[in-house]
Design a protein around this nucleic acid. Structure first.
Lengths: 217, 217
DNA sequence: ACCGTCCTCCCCCGAGAGAGGGAGGCAAAG
DNA sequence: CTTTGCCTCCCTCTCTCGGGGGAGGACGGT
């Protein structure tokens, strides 16, 4: 496995240096390929280097991490984004996740935990710092344990969420069935449930809603 | 042609009254079916009455017009939205258009211009107050003159762009045809052209691509 | 024990979607 | 003038989609 390539964006040069130094001993698992204090430069860096993950400070002078997060996701939906904060409050957590972030960590995180978290993020999971997870009670706790799945806030079940994601990626009912190793009729039932819960009448509207909600890449 | 049904949302009762009075002489072309100062109530009103157009103030206490715009479009993608502002700056213009608005007018607008603008909006055009259009230079000017259309950078023609937008908003081929006053077969031809240019094979993927590119709302 | 939700699969059936072809008009560019 | 692209409309054909119904098993809460 190649080491995870990381782009770091933070107002404070100190943090950039600190993170790079912190991860250097783990160079075989994760390497910082670029750092910048300029959010605008972050976009061009991401476009040039195509890192796998971007670590963003939530609060920055020029542009908020949340705003930058949206920009980066628009530029490259594949890029995973993890928000960093010194503030261990949950105020920006949900905003961050809504903006498309895959993780929300405090700067107290230690290197080996960070590496582990990044690996989970690349596996498609959403990671939240346990110290935050404790405070945001149920919802965030579920998030951290993986009991949470995209679209849950819309009332979708886990299976329905999986089906919707495959629909978003252009799969037909039959293709979804093949990927999930289920019968096509089963998928059609799930699809009808999704329509009912999302209050739409066809897959195009369902996909449009999912993308507008920012549920899937 | 039935008169255009309008929902007006504004913080100031004065403006609501003013608009209603202003449009009364044009009752055969456009009628205000409901007004409210409460953005939250606007959503239920829109759901009940299904007006064709919603006129929203950009700046309101409870909720910004931009936010409300997104909500309303989510509730009913068919609903056209025109933003009203006292501020003749272009600051919120692009945000508004990104939020799904079909028009951006200043409150200096006179009744007959407003009616004309609303009719153009219902025809699928995007209208911008000329006094603003002058300032936002090239891009907005082109928008206003129709020389520019979303998706042009993907090689789509203007007609194809219009069709794609209506597809994104959940319209079937037949519905698109009705809205553009064309034959369904014509739409199917355009749709095939869109698929070819976008290198996709069905409308769901086309819509997903458009939304990911951020072309439409 | 019952009810609700989820997950799985089956049937029928109509309507729409999408691929394939053709065709006429019109304007800009070669 | 011919080509190329765009816009409009028509035909056939296949297949997926989406609505309607039912059914059985699993799990968890009341």
């Amino acid at each position: 496995m190649d080491p995870i390539s990381i782009l770091v964006v933070d107002d404070h040069q100190m943090v950039l240096d600190g993170l790079s130094a912190m991860l250097r001993p783990f160079a075989d698992e994760a390497i910082v390929v670029a750092t910048t204090t300029d959010p605008n430069k972050a976009r061009s860096l991401a476009a040039e280097l195509h890192p796998q993950v971007a670590l963003l400070d939530v609060r920055m002078k020029a542009m908020s991490g949340l705003e930058l997060c949206e920009h980066l996701r628009r530029d490259d939906p594949q890029l995973k984004i993890v928000l960093l904060t010194v503030y261990d409050d949950e105020q920006y957590l949900f905003q961050g996740l809504r903006a498309g972030a895959s993780g929300y960590l405090t700067k107290q995180v230690v290197a080996e935990d960070l590496v582990a978290h990044l690996r989970r993020v690349l596996d498609g999971e959403v990671v939240v710092d346990p110290s935050l997870a404790g405070r945001v009670a149920l919802s965030a706790a579920r998030l951290d344990r993986g009991e949470f799945w995209p679209g849950a806030h819309l009332g979708l079940s886990q299976r329905e969420s999986e089906v919707l994601e495959l629909m978003v990626h252009g799969n037909s009912n039959r293709a979804v069935a093949a990927r999930l190793m289920l019968g096509e009729e089963t998928i059609k039932t799930h699809v009808r449930s999704i329509f009912r819960k999302l209050e739409v009448s066809d897959r195009t509207q369902a996909v449009a809603l999912a993308l507008r909600e920012g549920i899937f890449l």
